[in-house]
């Protein structure tokens, strides 16, 4: 607000709030990750692509698989540039083979 005074205390800049996301892995991706779900803490404003980069530091092959993976947030298909919010459920969906 124009003309408003700065906060009185000399508090350090506030770090970006973190968000926590539940990530689900299925089929071959569950095999690759060695788990079926994990909780991931990310900076606020992170996208699915950011989440993938974070997880690929543990499991580099995830980056290799990513072009053939679809994504759902809270059970709706989205693209990798979709933003994540605190409490979201992110599912990594390999090519499907039901029927």
């Amino acid at each position: 607000m124009a003309g408003s005074k700065p906060p009185p205390s000399a508090s350090p800049p506030v770090a970006p709030a973190a968000i926590s996301v539940r990530v689900l892995f299925f089929a071959s991706l569950a095999d690759l990750m060695g788990e079926r779900r994990r909780n991931l803490n990310l900076p606020a404003g992170s996208t699915i692509a950011d989440a993938l980069r974070d997880m690929a530091t543990d499991v580099p092959d995830l980056a290799v698989r990513a072009p053939h993976v679809s994504f759902a947030v809270n059970e709706a298909f989205v693209t990798a540039d979709a933003p994540l919010s605190d409490g979201d459920e992110l599912a990594l969906i390999p090519p499907v083979s039901g029927g």
């Binding site: 299925f26 089929a27 071959s28 095999d31 053939h68 993976v69 679809s70 994504f71 759902a72 298909f77 989205v78 693209t79 979709a82 599912a91 969906i93 390999p94 090519p95 499907v96 083979s97 039901g98 029927g99």
Partner: peptide, 29 residues
């Protein structure tokens, strides 16, 4: 159903098993 329902099939052979993941069935947003 075959193009966008998140279900996966695993084929078991006498000497191993594989997930069936046809890239052509990759669901789209």
């Amino acid at each position: 159903l075959k193009t966008r329902v998140p279900i996966w099939k695993k084929e078991f052979f006498r000497d191993g098993a594989v997930w069936v993941e046809p890239v052509s069935s990759q669901p789209s947003a």
